[in-house]
């Protein structure tokens, strides 16, 4: 039933010749990369084109790659699903590490509203055009974006976990 990946690739490449790249199966899901400035057009095309009809946004999330080149330090990953043909697709787009910005798709998929807020909350990725881009899970007073690798996962306010009491210091 599933749509042939070759057909999807052909359609996308035909329409967005130099904006898309790296087609291939990754962990059983057909994936490709898009330049960040054309993400809206590509998703809208995949949603509205009759042959692809990816009408459901399964997931939207961020990834941080601090060791990459400055232009590829953040990644936003979109998972789309065509329920009728039971076909999934994964779209990746890389963003600048100093100023991660991408156009919001919250008017194309209403469900992305909260997902984009979550991605902003944890990675500080700015979704331009989002109607209400503020923190959703963490407390409003938080200043860090905790899933970025430069921020420590552990709470430094913890007082009962002093390394000295666990024999972890060098001269103990």
């Amino acid at each position: 039933m599933a749509i042939e990946t070759a057909i999807i690739q052909e359609k996308i490449e035909q329409k967005f010749a130099n904006k898309v790249s790296n087609f291939g199966m990754q962990k059983d899901v057909f994936s490709f990369e898009v330049t960040s400035d054309s993400i809206r057009e590509v998703i809208l095309f995949l949603k509205e084109e009759e042959d692809t009809n990816f009408h459901f946004l399964t997931d939207l999330c961020g990834v941080h790659y601090p060791d990459n080149m400055i232009d590829q330090q953040f990644c936003v990953v979109y998972h789309l699903h065509n329920w009728i043909e039971n076909t999934r697709i994964r779209i990746k787009t890389y963003l600048n590490g100093a100023q991660p910005e991408i156009a919001s798709i919250s008017d194309i998929f209403l469900s992305s509203n909260w997902m984009e807020r979550e991605t902003y909350d944890f990675y500080g990725i700015n979704f331009m055009g989002h109607p209400q881009l503020k923190r959703i899970l963490n407390m409003d007073e938080m200043v860090s974006f905790p899933m970025r690798k430069e921020f420590p996962m552990e709470d430094n306010g913890r007082t009962d976990k002093d390394d000295r009491f666990f024999g972890r210091t060098a001269n103990c």
């Binding site: 938080m142 860090s144 921020f151 420590p152 996962m153 552990e154 709470d155 913890r158 976990k161």
Partner: peptide, 17 residues
């Protein structure tokens, strides 16, 4: 009492804070 195993940025490390 202390945050328990959740030694993480989102959890209060004991309500006595």
């Amino acid at each position: 009492s202390s945050g328990g195993v959740f030694d993480t940025y989102s959890v209060l490390q004991g309500i006595d804070k």
